[in-house]
Simulated scan of single mutants.
Amino acid sequence: MKTPLVTREGYQKLQQEHDELWFNERPEVTKIVSWAASLGDRSENADYIFNKKRLRQIDRRVRFLRKRLAQLKIVDYAPQQEGKVYFGAWVVIENAAQQSKRFRIVGPDEIYHRKDYISIDSPMARALVGKQLDDDIEVQTPQGIQHWWVSAISYRTEQK
């Protein structure tokens, strides 16, 4: 089960996607389907077949978004989080080989299309929650146990 947490920005993006699909795209596709259906034989009408399929995709996504948005809990930054890694934090970690990784810990609904976001449900995020600067962490990966330390924590919002 996915953790039902989301940042305010993530919630707004999901809400915008819902509104775009429901108020803009769906009415346009519905008009095309109605027009194509009025032409007669629907079995060989590519406009009808394609747009009817697109309408089903939109409806499926809208149903999912409505259900998911009702389940999500928005987590806002709180000043007492400063200095520790919690939900919504930008974190930089390093290892002994001088490799560095930078990412933000967010809800599972926000990680798509962003390579610098990781889910709060991931092993790395679970290992990081509650840690402070210079704390060591161990993360079990398919390659074995990886050792990292926290080199930076920030809660400023960054847009991409």
Rank of each mutant, 00 (worst) to 15 (best):
Q12E: 14
E94P: 00
S38T: 04
T3K: 06
Y112V: 15
K67M: 15
K2P: 10
D121N: 11
T7G: 00
V75W: 01
R56L: 12
V85Q: 03
R60C: 07
A89D: 01
V33H: 04
R126G: 08
R63C: 01
T3S: 12
R42W: 09
G144I: 04
G83V: 02
Y112H: 15
L72P: 02
S154A: 11
A125M: 06
A97R: 14
Y48H: 05
Y77L: 06
S154F: 02
L14M: 06
K52G: 08
K31M: 10
R126N: 08
R26M: 13
E20L: 10
F87W: 05
A89Y: 01
D59H: 08
R66L: 13
L5I: 13
D41E: 11
D116M: 03
R104N: 11
V29E: 03
I145D: 05
Q81Y: 13
W35V: 11
S34Q: 15
G144A: 03
Q132V: 04
K53A: 15
E20M: 11
E17S: 10
Q146F: 09
I105G: 02
V62D: 01
E138W: 03
I58W: 12
S43T: 10
E17K: 11
V139D: 02
D135F: 07
L72T: 09
R60T: 15
E44Q: 12
F87Q: 05
Y112A: 13
G40L: 05
L69W: 02
Y112F: 15
Q146P: 03
I120G: 00
T7L: 05
T141C: 04
I105S: 01
L69K: 01
Q16F: 08
V6P: 00
R61K: 08
E138A: 15
L133K: 10
Q16D: 13
H113D: 13
Q140L: 14
D136N: 13
V29A: 10
S119T: 02
V62P: 01
Y86W: 11
Q146G: 07
A96N: 09
G130K: 07
H113F: 14
Q71P: 11
W22T: 13
K67C: 09
K13R: 15
L21P: 05
Q132Y: 03
R26Y: 12
Y48S: 01
S119A: 12
E17I: 12
I120N: 00
K115I: 07
T30C: 06
W35F: 14
T141Y: 06
L65Y: 07
R61P: 00
R61E: 04
V150D: 07
K2F: 12
D76K: 13
Q146T: 06
E28N: 12
H18W: 14
I137H: 12
F64W: 15
L69N: 01
A70T: 07
I49Y: 08
L55R: 03
P27A: 02
A152R: 12
R68M: 10
M124A: 09
I145R: 14
F23H: 04
R8A: 11
D116L: 06
I137C: 09
H147Q: 15
Y48F: 15
E94Y: 03
L21T: 08
F50S: 11
